[in-house]
Design a protein around this nucleic acid. Structure first.
Length: 443
RNA sequence: GCCGCUUUAGCUUAGCUGGUGGAGCAUGGGACUGUUAAUCCCAAGGUCGCCGGUUCGAACCCGGCAAGCGGCGCCA
């Protein structure tokens, strides 16, 4: 049953002049009563297959002629080099077998017109037919790009002696604000879906010292923007004996490594989805500047933006701030009052915390949030109390600090935000197969 | 939680001041021996999102509802 030949190989010239057997799906067809052209697709590409009535016989020829788009077929034939064929290669079909036919009364619904004005495929129709839309060229490219981003996250951390470590998805307490938690019934109790691996990672920090994960996180935000999902994949790291600056080094290193990996592995796919490769190369090669929160506020005030010191930077302000940025920038040292308890106050000036956000250019916004953790028992209790957060759900977190607390920190990176930004997608939904947002959970 | 927009055939859509809805693609039939989103001819396919109102008459005007989409706050 396994495949002996792949369309990508044939298009690369590997089988010129030889007989091959191709298994795939009908992408397009055209032709006449005597000669028929089938553009066959598999996961590696497409190729034109030429079927002639003379050579095939009436039965096989009629089978092929009536094969609608997305019919699965097995074709045998010679590989012919021909300028008239897209990609320069074609198959002169000698035999054909239909494996899975398509009913003409219910043809494949995703037509050229369905994608015409979709611009990334985000019409209601295409979202409803997501299970079929996945096999179209744009989605296939996006899924391959996504796969390389995951691969790059793993290779970055593993090459640097980080250990992959896993946290539960059912949790009792919140990381971010409680309003964004998904409540789940749990044998008569209520638990929540995790928003972040971080608190559990900190518990393992004294064991592993350098750890990372890639896992889904869940946030019940009703946000309807091109940057939000309720279920997203979260790459997170935690490192012992490190401060804000060292953690940031890794954030920059990781993002640049992802960009470099995409250039190495997915240039064709990036170009196919319309991405300017020079931009991706710039993001891989250029250093990312650091900017303190105070500087950002002054810059914004200079631009006439209405902002006061102490306010968090919302997207509208981020957008103004980043509009002239040519590479991602780190924003550091936010006011203590704007950030949750686990951020460590800056010993040099306790008005600030040792934290950083990485803001992507081109309006894609925040892709990393991280910083140094509050690591002493005394300080964490102060921070929890000043925030008015109940201590009970965090007992285990506080306990970690009672037995040899050390300076440490980490960050979280939104995989889909990075995929979306580096691929130049119009919407975060384009880079995940079955997107989940506040209104859509099907298909 | 808030603001805005959309809904006409399987898909993409046209439809002017209210007077019985047109097209392209897809599908079916036919023609065609090198097509490139093939082309040409023909056919079938619509309770114009749902409910109510105004009117002699509503896809169109008014009200309500629903679904979807875009955005804000918050965040990765």
């Amino acid at each position: 049953m396994q495949k002996s030949h792949w369309i990508g190989e044939v298009q690369s010239g590997m089988h010129d002049g030889k007989e091959v057997e191709l298994k795939g799906w009908v992408h397009r067809t055209r032709g006449s009563n005597k000669i028929h052209f089938i553009v066959l697709r598999d996961s590696t590409g497409t190729i034109q297959c030429v079927a002639k009535r003379d050579a095939l016989g009436d039965d096989s020829f009629e089978d092929l002629k009536s094969s609608l788009i997305e019919t699965s077929i097995i074709l045998k034939g010679m590989v012919n080099v021909d300028e008239r064929a897209p990609g320069g290669h074609e198959i002169i079909v000698s035999s054909a077998e239909v494996v899975g036919p398509v009913n003409p009364e219910k043809p494949f619904p995703i037509t050229e017109s369905a994608m015409e004005n979709a611009d990334g495929g985000e019409t209601e129709f295409l979202l409803d037919n997501r299970h079929l839309y996945l096999r179209t060229g744009r989605m296939t490219n996006m899924l391959k790009i996504r796969s390389s981003v995951f691969g790059a996250v793993h290779s970055y951390f593993r090459e640097r002696e980080f250990t992959e470590y896993h946290a539960p998805s059912f949790v009792a307490g919140a990381v971010e604000g409680g309003s964004t938690l998904f409540e789940v019934p749990y044998f008569g109790r209520k638990v929540y879906l995790t928003q972040s691996w971080q608190l559990y990672a900190e518990a393992a920090m004294p064991a592993l010292e350098r750890l990372y994960t890639v896992a889904p996180s869940f946030r019940a935000e009703k946000s309807r923007t091109r940057r939000h999902l309720t279920e997203f994949w979260h790459a997170e790291m935690e490192i012992a004996w490190a401060g804000n600056a060292e953690v940031m080094e890794h954030g920059e290193g990781l993002v640049r490594h992802i960009a470099r990996t995409l250039l190495d592995e997915r240039s064709d796919e990036l170009a196919s989805v319309g991405r300017d490769l020079d931009l991706v190369a710039r993001y891989a090669d250029s250093p990312y500047p650091r900017m303190r929160y105070d500087e950002a506020v002054e810059t914004l005030q200079g631009l006439g933006v209405d902002i006061e010191w102490g306010q968090d930077l919302d997207y509208s302000k981020e957008k103004v701030l980043t509009q002239d940025f040519e590479v991602p920038h780190f924003l550091t040292h936010y006011p203590r009052i704007a950030k949750p308890f686990y951020h460590r106050p800056d010993p040099d000036d306790e008005k600030y915390v040792l934290c950083h956000d990485l803001l992507a250019p081109e309006g894609y916004g925040e892709i990393i949030g991280g910083g140094e953790r509050t690591w002493s028992e005394k300080e964490i209790l102060e921070r929890i109390d000043e925030e008015g957060t109940p201590r009970e759900p965090y007992e285990f977190y506080i306990d970690v600090r009672r037995y040899g607390g050390v300076p440490h920190g980490g960050f979280g990176l939104g995989i889909e935000r990075v995929c979306s930004w580096l691929s130049g997608a119009d919407h975060i939904r384009e880079v995940i197969p079955f997107p989940r947002d506040s209104r859509r959970v099907t298909p």
